[in-house]
Simulated scan of single mutants.
Amino acid sequence: MIPKPQEIAVVFNVADIERTEGFYRDTLGLDVTRQEGAEPFWLIADLTAGSQLIFFQSDDVRPGNTPIVVFDLKAGGIDDLITALAEQGVTIVTPVSEAPGGWSADFLDPDGNALAFWQRAEVPRSLKG
């Protein structure tokens, strides 16, 4: 069985994480929480029904390469899903690799839009027997 995403996050790569924190917290009024695991730190703004905005500081910030919609695989199975997508001819941009708190993989939809799957490290990467 191929796993299906249950929640969604929109991930932004930003040039100045502290400026971003101030904007989303002070200007937009979102509850923004600092996280460890990426330098200098990264941010999560929890929205409703399991939706999140996530921010990472990056030296490679260009218009058009952010944000990325990231689907959360609560039950795991990222290896199975990415293998199945590749077998269907989907362009895999980044194979399954370590990400803060777990594993992720990036791929393109038919129009070239970047999407990603992420799962926590605690759940199995494969759900096959």
Rank of each mutant, 00 (worst) to 15 (best):
residue 51 S to A: 11
residue 45 A to L: 09
residue 31 D to N: 15
residue 60 D to F: 02
residue 36 E to W: 00
residue 46 D to N: 12
residue 19 R to M: 06
residue 47 L to Y: 04
residue 26 D to G: 14
residue 30 L to M: 11
residue 55 F to G: 07
residue 36 E to T: 05
residue 7 E to P: 04
residue 42 W to L: 00
residue 40 P to E: 03
residue 24 Y to F: 15
residue 15 A to H: 10
residue 13 N to P: 10
residue 25 R to S: 15
residue 57 Q to G: 02
residue 23 F to L: 13
residue 52 Q to N: 04
residue 11 V to N: 10
residue 22 G to N: 14
residue 21 E to L: 05
residue 43 L to H: 07
residue 25 R to W: 07
residue 35 Q to W: 01
residue 8 I to V: 14
residue 62 R to V: 06
residue 7 E to Q: 15
residue 11 V to F: 06
residue 42 W to Q: 03
residue 7 E to T: 14
residue 50 G to R: 05
residue 17 I to Y: 03
residue 49 A to N: 12
residue 40 P to Y: 04
residue 47 L to N: 07
residue 24 Y to V: 07
residue 47 L to F: 02
residue 7 E to C: 10
residue 38 A to V: 05
residue 19 R to W: 07
residue 29 G to I: 06
residue 26 D to H: 10
residue 30 L to G: 07
residue 55 F to L: 03
residue 42 W to I: 01
residue 19 R to S: 13
residue 60 D to Y: 01
residue 32 V to C: 04
residue 51 S to W: 06
residue 7 E to I: 04
residue 59 D to P: 11
residue 8 I to L: 14
residue 6 Q to Y: 12
residue 50 G to A: 13
residue 27 T to V: 15
residue 9 A to V: 02
residue 62 R to G: 00
residue 52 Q to L: 02
residue 8 I to M: 14
residue 29 G to K: 02
residue 59 D to W: 08
residue 57 Q to C: 00
residue 36 E to A: 05
residue 34 R to I: 00
residue 38 A to P: 02
residue 27 T to N: 09
residue 53 L to W: 03
residue 22 G to C: 08
residue 37 G to W: 00
residue 28 L to T: 07
residue 44 I to T: 12
residue 54 I to R: 08
residue 10 V to Q: 11
residue 10 V to I: 14
residue 16 D to V: 08
residue 61 V to N: 04
residue 26 D to F: 12
residue 54 I to Y: 03
residue 46 D to K: 13
residue 20 T to R: 12
residue 34 R to Q: 03
residue 26 D to W: 11
residue 37 G to L: 05
residue 32 V to G: 08
residue 51 S to H: 09
residue 15 A to D: 12
residue 21 E to D: 02
residue 61 V to E: 00
residue 59 D to L: 11
residue 52 Q to G: 01
residue 34 R to V: 01
residue 41 F to W: 09
residue 37 G to F: 03
residue 18 E to V: 09
residue 30 L to C: 02
residue 8 I to N: 06
residue 6 Q to G: 15
residue 24 Y to A: 11
residue 25 R to P: 13
residue 41 F to E: 00
residue 40 P to K: 04
residue 17 I to E: 06
residue 61 V to P: 06
residue 29 G to P: 05
residue 17 I to V: 15
residue 34 R to P: 00
residue 35 Q to L: 01
